[in-house]
Design a protein around this nucleic acid. Structure first.
Length: 877
DNA sequence: TTGTCGCGGGG
DNA sequence: GTGTACGCGACAA
């Protein structure tokens, strides 16, 4: 009993660290052993900001002491190299201890100054290798492990961020740029919207400078200086925006460089001056992101916002300014000019940082969310904000390419738009940023790094390293692939067409459950850290979920517990991915991963067989869950009993859950289906036909919505499938006929037949390739007289009468679309998505060409949707 | 037709 | 200090 408790608290330390220091917001450490910790009191305690200078003992892990033997008596063995008193070893000593167990990295070494520690190791390595060693990497793969200074500090102290703070205790600021275009070499910033969660909402723009007689580059430089002053004055803990690292920061950095404006946006370090914006070391970032210069040149001349701006012209004259985002007091980190976004430059690598503040890109949070949920229409700010209901009713929308032109015509509209942007960025950060906030309370990394980290390499690995160091266990060398093939999950389509009384049952967190149930652990993990973490995460997540449910909706407590639950879900679900990524994760073990998927396939097979044996009609099974239909006469209780009966056949940690029930389903292909929810009263499918069926319709898969689809097609699909799932076949045909009719009469607005296309070629590039291949979007631009556009512009294109392509100008509605073409598209593309629901004859009758209705078709009333069985339940193996 | 590459975001 | 998935459309062979 007492052993259990001690073991539990040890494993809690692996997950949460062991030092309860509250309120840490950010840590900045140098390799020389100095650290600065910024802490904030909870708002309830005054919310003051504290700045503490600290020291830590830099450390690293080695596979051998041989490179340190040259130190002689200056190499001293101690119990705990991360905490050494002057009595234990002199100040200039390198200290070490030997770690236990079979891992290759079996020496924890430390010194008062990390640079001296490294130099000592490198000197010994140079002697051993017979050539100078200048970096730890020269020691060779797998013979050492070191982490950045701030993480050394957090591991050594057992501290973590945000203890005792709620999300809103952080001082969070959002800013958003409005620019004349996408390319900072040639476009300029004319407006910056700034808001924070302490009541600020401000627009900075070049018109203010203009009132003092500043124009062009002077006005832009003045704008940047006022921006810097505002950040310093507000002194936020966190700076957020959507695509912050991919657009706003590189744009600001580049413009500042060209204009010669320094960017001291960080908090003061030791010298008392605000630290400059810098790039986070990310080797991969630039090279590929620099882009092809001649293309950038093209873009400058072809900017869609017309002529080059005053600002840009003037800026060009002082291209050689020495603006520098480097912190002169720090190490020389920058290896080249700041990254600019280019065609290939989605800047997953290029990241920025500023001491004392955490830079959070809501695009990262959106991607992390959608990785699991897969229900977002896109990852853009506006689309996501609308999806989550964050968009204000009077939200201003301006197409990207129109922003600058709108500014010149109607600046207040752009101001409104930019404030809407920062407000939505704030809402998004609150809604989706909680997970990273909670992760920062666990893992020994800064918040901003946890926000963009991959969960396996970026979070689990640091947790595991900290656990090994804490337990004084020798750390296994980094895994390499032994060639074992990774096997996957199973996916079955049992039936296609239409079925009623649908139930979805799935195993919550299947893979981690199987790891726990069958104690599947990667072979090199002699400490058992991964499985112990998964155990803790699953247990504590359940607790956090029930705490969240008990807390008042909207309360900080609820937000906090939901965030912990979301964070733990991310970690739990990545434990399996961790196993299967040799070369990426330290303790990968593909054999163990395959053991998990093997149990997973067996579990899904068992579910399917047992459900079918008890009267269910299987429709689709995927990895960890099944859609099936039950007989018409069954009650909800019958459905639940079935799921419970089958759940009882599974081992205790593998929990089958009743996930949902639906009135009807159209099964099209695997992962492509439509579900009709029951009317408002979930227990009574026959009640309340209030005509909002379309809202109760859930469409899944690319067959039912693709970003390129014409709006009229999506509308048709929703209406037709809604009728279909209600059994209203005449209604399906009526929708079809009405849509065709509206097209033929051109009653549908032109917007309904357009597709949104993003332009990837410059005019020159397209003209060069035009002879060999014509592309609709560019032909449309040329046909409408546009010879100038910018890469990255999005346009709406449609097919106009006479077979030519046309661009739809915002606000226009010429109704000159090729109606017959779109009627054909309605038949061949959209109606076809309902084909599985009918016999071929019935399909032909329902969707006859509108101009020649079939005389011999069966009456619609006699047509019923069908369900076709495609496969039997998998057999036991 | 089939295989490979690049994109997703920001103005 | 390593990225990353996944599905689609564009382009080359």
């Amino acid at each position: 009993m007492r052993d259990d408790t001690r073991e539990d608290s040890q494993k809690d330390e692996w997950l949460w660290g062991w030092d309860a220091t509250p309120g840490i917001i950010s840590v900045w450490a140098e390799r020389d052993g100095r650290a600065i910790v910024w802490r904030r009191e909870p708002a309830s305690a005054g919310g003051a900001l504290l700045r503490e200078e600290a020291r830590y003992r830099p450390w690293l892990l080695l596979d051998s002491l041989v490179d340190l033997l040259h130190l002689g008596a200056r190499l001293v063995v101690v119990d705990d190299p991360q905490h050494v008193t002057p009595q234990q070893a002199p100040a200039h000593a390198v200290t070490y201890c030997e770690l236990v167990g079979p891992g290759r990295l079996r020496y924890l070494v430390s010194a008062a100054d990390g640079r001296l520690l490294e130099q000592a190791v490198l000197r010994g390595a140079g002697q051993r290798l017979g050539r100078p060693a200048s970096r730890l990497a020269d020691l060779g793969e797998g013979s050492y492990h070191s982490v950045p200074p701030d993480e050394q500090y957090l591991v050594a102290t057992g501290r973590a961020c945000f203890r005792g703070l709620t999300f809103d205790d952080l001082h969070r600021l959002q800013f958003d740029l409005e620019t004349t275009g996408l390319f900072p070499d040639h476009d300029a910033i004319f407006l910056i919207a700034v808001r924070d969660n302490r009541g600020l909402a401000r627009i900075l723009d070049v018109q203010e400078g203009a009132r003092q007689g500043l124009t062009g580059a002077d006005a832009e430089a003045d704008l940047l200086r006022r921006f810097v002053a505002l950040i310093q004055a507000r002194d936020p803990d966190v700076i957020e925006n959507h695509n912050l690292h991919g657009f706003d920061l590189p744009f600001v950095a580049r413009r500042a460089e060209l204009l010669g404006v320094p960017l001291p946006l960080g908090r003061p370090l030791w010298n008392g001056e605000h630290a400059l914006l810098r790039q986070r070391p990310a080797a991969r970032g630039y090279g590929i992101a620099r882009g092809e210069p001649e293309e950038i040149g093209d873009l400058g001349q072809m900017s869609d916002s017309g002529e080059q701006t005053e600002q840009t012209k003037q800026t060009k004259q002082n291209d050689s300014t020495d603006g520098d985002v480097e912190d002169k007091s720090g190490e020389q980190r920058r290896q080249g000019p700041p990254e600019v976004p280019t065609r290939r430059g989605r800047s997953s690598g290029g990241r920025y940082t500023m001491p004392g503040r955490e830079l959070i890109d809501t695009l990262d949070a959106v991607r992390r969310y959608d990785f699991a949920a897969r229900d977002l229409p896109g990852h853009g700010l506006k689309a996501v904000a609308r999806h989550f209901g964050l968009a204000a009713p009077d939200r201003a929308y301006i197409e990207g390419a129109e922003v600058y032109a709108t500014w010149q015509r109607d600046p207040d509209r752009v101001r409104h738009y930019a404030l809407d942007d920062v407000n939505e960025a704030d809402g998004l950060a609150r809604l989706l940023g909680g997970a990273a906030f909670a992760l920062a309370q666990m893992a020994p990394r800064r918040y901003e790094r946890l926000a963009d980290a991959g969960p396996a390499t970026g979070i689990l690995d640091p947790l595991i390293v900290r656990a090994y160091v804490r337990a004084h266990a020798a750390l296994p060398a980094h895994s390499v692939s032994d060639g074992e093939q990774h096997t996957g999950a199973s996916l079955y389509l049992f039936a296609s067409g239409v079925a009623q009384r649908i139930v979805k049952a799935d195993v919550s967190s299947l893979y981690p459950s199987l790891m726990r149930q069958y104690r599947i652990s990667p072979a090199p993990d002699h400490l058992g850290a991964l499985l112990a973490l998964v155990d803790r995460l699953v247990e504590q997540r359940l607790a956090a979920k029930s705490r969240a449910k008990a807390a008042p909706p909207g309360s900080p407590e609820r937000h906090g517990d939901e965030a912990i639950s979301a964070a733990m879900k991310i970690l739990v679900n990545s434990a399996y991915g961790y196993l299967g990524a040799p070369g990426l994760t330290r303790l990968a073990d593909v054999h163990a991963a395959n053991e998990v998927t093997r149990h997973g396939r067996a579990t899904l097979g068992l579910l399917c067989r047992e459900l079918a044996a008890r009267g269910a009609t299987l429709i689709e099974g995927d990895t960890d869950g099944v859609y099936f239909a039950v007989p018409q006469a069954w009650s909800v209780d019958d459905e639940r009993r079935l799921v419970r009966d089958v759940a009882d056949l599974l081992p205790p940690l593998v929990r089958l859950e009743f996930e949902g029930r639906y009135a009807a389903m159209l099964s099209h292909e695997t992962k492509n289906y439509a579900l009709l929810a029951y009317p408002s009263s979930p227990s009574d499918p026959s009640s309340g036909d209030d005509g909002d069926d379309e809202q109760r319709l859930l469409l899944r898969g690319v067959a039912f919505h693709s970003s390129r689809a014409e709006p009229f097609g999506e509308v048709f699909l929703r209406q037709a499938i809604s009728c279909l799932l209600r059994g209203d076949i005449p209604g399906v045909q009526a929708v079809y006929m009405a849509t065709a009719d509206a097209l033929l009469r051109r009653e549908l607005p032109t917007l309904q037949v357009t597709t949104r296309v993003r332009l990837t070629k410059t005019p020159q590039r397209y003209l060069a390739s035009r002879t060999s291949r014509r592309e609709a979007a560019y032909e449309a631009l040329l046909a409408s007289g546009r010879t100038r556009w910018s890469r990255g512009d999005q346009v709406r294109v449609y097919r106009a009468s006479g077979g030519r392509f046309a661009v739809l100008v915002e606000g226009a509605d010429p109704r000159d679309y090729d109606a017959r073409y779109y009627v054909r598209l309605l038949q061949t593309t959209y109606a076809a998505r309902l084909a599985r629901a009918f016999t071929p004859d019935d399909f032909a009758a329902v969707f006859a060409p509108p101009e020649q209705p079939s005389l011999f078709a069966p009456p619609l009333e006699t047509i019923h949707p069908i369900l076709t069985t495609l496969a039997a339940p998998p057999v036991d193996d």
